[in-house]
Design a protein around this nucleic acid. Structure first.
Length: 445
RNA sequence: GCGGAUGUAGCUCAGUUGGUUAGAGCGUCUGUUUGUGGCACAGAAGGCCGUGGGUUCAAGUCCCAUCAUUCGCCCCA
C-alpha cells in the first residue's frame, strides 16, 4: 500500500504560496484588531467535552466534532469554535481582569462535516470579543471593526451588507405579541433561518403546520407573513414598536451611520441558529449573486461566562472564517498577487565562485536582506528562470567582475529593469521598496 | 445520514459502435557552444487508465462492488 500525498479530508496543506495568502489575510486581521486596542490570546486545541456539552447539544457533539478518550479516560474534543474557550478563560480570572476587555484570536478549529463549497473540516477563524460593556457601544465597536477589516482588504460597501437583528425582539414578537409557545418559537426560528432556500408555498405550508388550529383561526399565518417582509424598524406593528430592543436597534443603526457604515440594515429574518445569543445579533452577507451567502456573524452573548459559576459578564463578539473570507475576496477580485518573501535571488557564475562569494553574502544578510543563493552552477538564464518561478522580485548576479569592483547589477524581475550600484545603495533600495509595500512579509506586486 | 457528478501523465483534459506498442496542451528537465528570465526551435523524462471482480477471443471503453474527490440536502456553533 502506498502512502497518499493528499492531506486529510477537509484539511489543507499550506504550500509556501498558500501560506503567503494566509499570512496576508491574518496580518490585516491583526492590524485592524490591534488598532482598536484588542489584544491577542490563544488556548489549547483540546477542550474537555463537557465544555461543549454545557450548551446542551449532544447531537452536535456526537456527529460533528472530533471527540475521543485520552489515555486517562477523559473525554476530550478538538475545539469547534473559540467562544466557549474564551468564556472559560475570562471566567477563570473573572475578578482580576480589567474591564472592558478587548481580546482577539485566530485559532484553527475542527468540525466533522460533509464538505461543500466554503465548508471544510479544519479552518481558521478570527474571533473578536469585547467583555464588560452592557450598552450597544460594544456592538457598535465590533461591527465597525468588522467593517473596517473588510475595507482594509479592498472591499467596498456595495459588496456586502450588514444585517442586524435582536434575539430579544424576536422572542418578544413571537412570544408575547403572537403568543407562541417555546417549542413553536424554536421550530419557527429554524424555519425562518432557511426561508430563502424554500419555495414560497412550501414555506407557507410549513408555517401553517407548526401553528395550532386556534392560532390559524386567529390569523397568525397572515400576521407572520406581514412581519417577515418588514424591512425597517418603523414598519413593525405599533404593539411592539416601543419594546426596549427596538430602541437599542435604532440607536445602534444610528451610531453605525455616524461611523460611516452605510450598509447596515435591520433584518427581522436574521436568526443565527440556536446558540447562546441573548440580544443583538448581526451577520455580514456577500451581495454577489454568485456567492450569495452569509460570510460571518456574531452578537451579544451575556450568559456564557456565567456558566462557569461566576458572575456573568456582558459580552459581544463575532467570528470570521478564513475560507468564507477568501471566497468573498476571490469572487470580488480582491486577492492581490503576493510576491515571495525572499528579497533577492543571488545567481552565481559558476560553482567555483561559491567560496569567494561568502563574505559578500554574509554582509548582505547582516544588512537584513533575505537572500536565496543558487549554487547549482547552472547557466544564468536557468537560474533566473527559477527565481521568476518562485515569485522572487530581485536578482543579483555574482561573478568575479562584481566581487572585484564592488558594483552590482540589481535586476527587477517584475519590470525587467536593471540598475548598477554599490552594496550599500542596493540594500537601501530594497529596504525602501519593502517598507512602501504591504506588511505581513508580502510585497504587493 | 440522504442524493447527484467525476476518477486516464505533475496540472487541465481528449480517447469513436469494445480492436494492435495510450494521446494533446500546459508544466518539468536537457540542449540550441557555457554572464542575464518570459519568445522560438529540437529532444527527454513522466501512466497498474482509482482499486477489485465480472462479461468477452479482446476492456481505458460494458456490468457489479469498493475507495477517493467534489457539489447539493440535513445541519451549521
Amino acid at each position: 500500500m502506498t502512502l497518499a500525498t493528499q492531506p486529510y479530508k477537509g484539511a489543507r496543506d499550506f504550500y509556501p504560496e498558500d501560506k503567503r495568502i494566509q499570512k496576508y489575510l491574518f496580518s490585516k486581521m491583526r492590524e485592524i484588531c490591534e488598532s482598536f486596542g484588542y489584544e491577542e490570546y490563544d488556548a489549547p486545541i483540546l477542550e474537555p467535552t463537557d465544555l461543549y456539552l454545557a450548551k446542551g447539544n449532544q447531537e452536535i457533539i456526537d456527529e460533528q466534532t472530533y471527540t475521543f478518550q485520552d489515555r486517562g479516560g477523559r473525554s476530550v474534543t478538538i475545539r469547534t469554535e473559540m467562544t466557549p474557550t474564551v468564556s472559560r478563560m475570562v471566567a477563570g480570572r473573572r475578578q482580576e481582569l480589567g474591564y472592558p476587555l478587548r481580546w482577539y484570536s485566530i485559532p484553527n478549529v475542527w468540525r466533522y462535516e460533509r464538505m461543500q463549497r466554503g465548508r471544510l473540516r479544519e479552518f481558521w477563524q478570527l474571533n473578536v470579543d469585547v467583555f464588560g460593556i452592557e450598552g450597544i457601544e460594544a456592538e457598535h465597536e465590533v461591527i465597525v471593526l468588522a467593517d473596517q477589516l473588510l475595507k482594509r482588504y479592498g472591499a467596498t460597501a456595495d459588496m456586502y451588507v450588514i444585517q442586524v437583528s435582536s434575539r430579544a425582539l424576536v422572542q418578544h414578537i413571537f412570544g408575547e405579541y403572537l403568543g407562541l409557545g417555546d417549542t413553536q418559537i424554536e421550530t419557527l426560528i429554524r424555519l425562518i433561518d432557511r426561508m430563502h432556500k424554500l419555495p414560497e408555498d412550501a414555506f407557507i405550508a410549513q408555517l401553517d403546520a407548526l401553528l395550532s388550529p386556534s392560532q390559524r383561526e386567529a390569523g397568525l399565518v397572515e400576521d407572520l407573513k406581514k412581519l417577515l417582509v418588514v424591512k425597517k424598524l418603523s414598519e413593525l406593528p405599533p404593539q411592539v414598536a416601543d419594546h426596549p430592543s427596538v430602541h437599542k436597534l435604532q440607536s445602534l443603526l444610528h451610531l453605525l451611520e455616524t461611523s460611516h457604515v452605510t450598509n447596515a440594515v435591520f433584518d427581522i429574518t436574521l436568526m443565527r441558529g440556536f446558540d447562546y445569543y441573548t440580544d443583538i445579533v448581526f451577520e455580514v452577507a456577500d451581495t454577489d449573486p454568485e456567492n450569495n451567502r452569509s460570510m460571518f456573524g456574531g452578537g451579544r452573548y451575556d450568559g456564557l461566562v456565567g456558566m462557569f459559576g461566576v458572575e456573568p459578564v456582558p459580552t459581544v463578539g463575532f467570528g470570521m472564517g478564513d475560507v468564507t473570507l477568501q471566497n468573498f475576496l476571490d469572487s470580488h477580485g480582491l486577492m492581490p498577487q503576493l510576491a515571495n518573501e525572499v528579497d533577492v535571488y543571488v545567481t552565481l557564475v559558476g560553482e567555483a565562485l561559491y567560496p569567494r562569494a561568502q563574505a559578500t553574502l554574509d554582509t548582505m544578510r547582516k544588512e537584513g536582506l533575505r537572500l536565496a543563493v543558487d549554487a547549482t552552477g547552472r547557466r544564468i538564464d536557468k537560474q533566473l528562470k527559477t527565481a521568476v518561478k518562485k515569485g522572487i522580485r530581485y536578482s543579483i548576479v555574482l561573478g568575479d567582475q562584481e566581487l572585484d569592483s564592488g558594483r552590482f547589477m540589481l535586476k527587477d524581475l517584475v519590470d525587467g529593469t536593471t540598475e548598477e550600484h554599490g552594496l550599500e545603495r542596493i540594500v537601501s533600495i530594497i529596504r525602501d521598496r519593502r517598507s512602501n509595500n504591504q506588511p505581513g512579509g508580502a510585497i504587493n506586486l
